[in-house]
Design a protein around this nucleic acid. Sequence first.
RNA 1: GGGCGUGUAGCUCAGUUGGUUAGAGCGCGUCCCUGAUAAGGACGAGGUCCCAGAUUCGAGUUCUGGCACGCCCA
Length: 1221
Amino acid sequence: MVLARAGQREPFGFRPCRLNRLRPLQSRIFEATFSISDSASNLTAMAKSAAAPFRADPTPPKFPALEEEILAFWKQNGIYEKSLERRADAPPFVFFEGPPTANGMPHPGHCLTRAIKDVFPRYKTMRGFRCERKAGWDTHGLPVEVEVGKELGIHSKEEIENYGIEPFIHKCQQSVWRYMQQWQRLTERLGFWVDLEKAYVTYHQSYVESVWWSLKNLFDRGLLYQGHKIVWWWAQGGTALSSGEVGQGYREVADPSVYVLFPLVDQPNDSDAQRSLLVWTTTPWTLPSNMYAAVHPELDYTLVRDSESGEEIYMASALVTKIAEKSKREFETVETCKGTDLIGLRYTPPFDGYKSSTGDPLGELVQPDGDQKTLHHFWRVVEADFVTTDSGSGIVHQAAAFGEVDYEVYDRERRRFVEGQQPQLLCAVGPDGKFVEAVSDDLIGVWVKDADKPLSRLLKERGLMFLQEQYLHDYPFCWRADQDPLIQYPRESWFIRTTKFRDLMLKNNSQIGWQPEHIRDGRFGNFLESNVDWALSRERYWGTPLPIWVCQETGRMEAIGSYDELLAKPGISGTEVWEQAKAADPALVDDLRVHKPYIDEVTYESPFAAGARMKRVSEVIDCWYDSGAMPFAQWGWPHNGDTEFKSQFPADFISEAIDQTRGWFYSQLAIATMLFGEGASISEDGYASAPSELTKTDADYPLPFRNCIVLGLMLSQWWEALDDDGKKIIALEESETKQHKGKKFTKQIGKMSKSLRNYRSPEEIFDRYGADALRWYLFANQAPWNSIIYAEQSIKDSIPEFLLRLWNTYSFFSIYAAIDGFDPCAAVDFDDQLSPASLASAPKYRPAAERSEIDRWILSELQQTIAKVIERMDALDNYNACQAISSLLDGLSNWFVRRSRDRFWASDKESQDKHDAYWTLYETLIQLTKLAAPFTPFLADSLWKRLTEPFAGKVLESVHLCDYPTSDDSVIDVELSESMRLLREIASLGRAARAAEKLKVRLPLSEVTVILTDDSKIGWLQNHDALVREELNVKAVHYTTEGDQYVQYTVVPNFKRLGPKVGKQVPAVKKALGEADGNELLAALQSKGVVSISLGDSAIELDSEDIEVRLKAKEGWAAAQGLGSVVVLNTEVTPELQREGIAKDLVRAIQNQRKAIECEYTDRIEVSIDAADDQVAEAIKEHGALIGGETLADTLQAGTLEGVESVDSEHGAVYVRKVTG
RNA sequence: GGGCGUGUAGCUCAGUUGGUUAGAGCGCGUCCCUGAUAAGGACGAGGUCCCAGAUUCGAGUUCUGGCACGCCCA
């Protein structure tokens, strides 16, 4: 049928094809008379009406094109802005945008985060909240520098400095916007409503100044301090490498593995033997910097006597045999002990360089151990959890300067001593990787890796080298100079004392609603538990400069909280460097004045020493600090934006992927905990605390976000094969693999890879299927915290599964509404969002309670769905919200519409039932459109425009300006839902029984009998059996509970109820019920209300709630069984029924032939049938009118049609010819 | 090596305080419908719920120990 071709939107009423059907048909042979069909009279009325309010919209849309239209509409009419204006005075729902970096291309993973970040604000806005959505961009950091470095073909810091920091910074500033357009396009095209124009940018001066303010705050409270950080260091290049860079340079090498004797200082009195620790290390060059020897407190250790030398040696018990074998010695056990027993023992260090220069210093303990108030700084046995017996000796050499875990041990030890008496870090190596401290005079200036051999020789000479071997392991080399091994090396670094806030961070964390919940006590909670101080500084160029100025004479420091504060300092100088640069190049953005190198030039008079200058330290800060400061820095607070900040903190909702656990989730929490609420009053001893305005009570101040959805990773799915040249062929859909004949493809799931091109770009997805398809896929297919497979086919599938289904339901409505001229404007009191209550003003609008069952049913389902969606969305559960919407759409499309077709086609245009049907469908579509709006905003708005077209501008122009529907409990009828569910089950069982008996639906049957376990719903079912009769093509339906002849009753326990009641007797009850006669039990239950079961000596009474009656169809019936019902078919086919079935078969055969000869839907035909037997001829005679009417046949004769090819049907040859002229 | 997570139909995923016939979509098979028609629909097949043990009247669900995979950190 062609009602209107694609793009045509003409009113339906004048379609000539309908009017043709007015002409009665005469069948010459069978003399059937035709009455004017119902539909024809309907059309007559239609033809006379003026242009209908609705236009038939039968063609499925091209969703991408439709979305582009909607995008243009939103833009032109400022819909997003209007949606905010409407909520100007509403309570806030605060959303924080975690800033992405725009110097890389956006990829599918960003679609997920941006879609989730859109759906909840949209929902909350419709629910009546003011949800501002300020975009943001993360612009600082090493990735930006690397990107610029690639462009310039340079890598090292030295090269950058040769190139010039000033032009390098300019390049960085420009580079961060490289993919801005793509980002903006993605954001917009996906339908992510966010204010890009007022986006915060981390390099902006106001942002930097907010960060400065916060750092000054921390500095003034004594929480910002200098210390050491162990980094992977490229000694030859003089720079630290990021973990990513280090990861690139691993390769397998052979390194020495040495077991060294550390003689114990306090030897036992009762023995002359020398006692030593057997200490293991794989880096002999770090031995001169030895500070401790570490044991695991829980491990067993054995003191052995070397039978050859008589020495007594401690080692892990588990390793005694292994070490004896390796060293070819014989050991006898002297004694065994736990690691804890060794802790505190003192030894002589392997090299005495430090001992001779520093002596053996003592320090005062913070917490004295009994009488012991002091402790030696170095050369003691300490405990460490990381010691294992996998290799080595179970006692590990500790050189804190050259290992991160070693440094942690040192740091722990250091804190045991009072301030000023703490041990220094022993480091015998300079930043160039060469020895500086005298181990032996020969070694000064020797590169560490060249020192292993001479050091080993020295140890041997002194009898301390117990065992030496080689072992293979992966070790990092510099990725730019692959002969240069990296070493771990301590660098001066700035730290924030976050450990002081650990408990408070945990407390704040406990207030956060994490989705999924396990993040709180799992990954994030554990991370907080093991909190270490935040290493803040970076020896780089493009980042927020650390705002600390140092007195060049005294070394005393102060922090600066804003640029103006800096300018107000006495004797300021150096600002002219920026002014000159700006004058030379007016295009420079002003924000650069607070960046390197300009800010480094600004100095002022020292308040600490007359005549001295204050100069900034050289470092910039970790860009994670930037992002974590966004809650206030996005407003430039506290220098600006006081109102905004106070109304927009803390956030109600944020979302990012799980990789942000240690990133943005942590940086936000840490910064907010330190600056606001209870944490603001915490300072180091002797330092000021923060202003009291920041220390609001925590009760209404959970920090810094109330809810967070932690998204899973996004993976790709593709098919892979090798072509003849051994190159990979990638197919993104399974169907694509068929283009490569003879190639064997294997399905792959894994990370997305730009080089492999194993995923479809978001832009292509939008062009092929549209943003709504992608969004629906992301929202409705799995809980968002599971890893999501970005599979093209699955995205494509969301079109038929949801989008097209919704569209087709609307399309059905539009076709019939056009035919009947249904006009919703009859509701004169309509409000601007067509709320159901306001539509009630239409003359033919009846309250739901007065409408037919199926109307009440779908309206009840609608209200239940609304309640469910709201409940789920308020719990940030988009998945189950979508499931509820899907399920409603299924009910609407597959039951309400299907079972209401006749009502829409009915001839009496003014019948109340027809109006009920329209109002029901219209209201449901309107509400469904609103429900879907946050999820599929394009389709929803497109439907809204079409559904509200008759109101011509008198209602809200976009669905996104509407209020979200609220549930009307008075319309909910749970019992009706239950009854309808049973009715649908009966229909389904009937179809199954038919299929099993090979009785196709076209063959009418005389009756079905439905056996139920109880009679509570029989009355209702009888009133609605027309639905079942039509659905199953039967003449009659009988309902009964007396089904003994058809079914066997069995009684099973209701375990949920019986379990708590009878406990351990459950199996006995089950057995007794199983053995009893079901029919008798049922009879007893019906007459007395209870059944009695004997269990050995005792008896137990069970009521109808305790047990459940089940039915099982007996053999020999055409039956199908469900949980509480059995449907039995009467399979007797009378000649009458047979003939009716034959007629329907013929209709189908003729219709197929119409299609085969390419008839338009309106074409008239001539039909001849060469009947196979008398029965067929009889059927044609009896049902000729039906056949002719259905197939638009002008003539229907027996025999053949000359010049026409016949088609065989089981009832004879069928000839069909188009009537021309 | 440590932490966290995941493991359910051919595939992708749901599965409520533990309740005895474990669900959906896709795919597959069979079929229906032909006035939503370049649509729509039904029915069916398909499961050792990763393995082992424990708790319990009862375990996909709780506990313990494994295995596999993924992520983060070493």
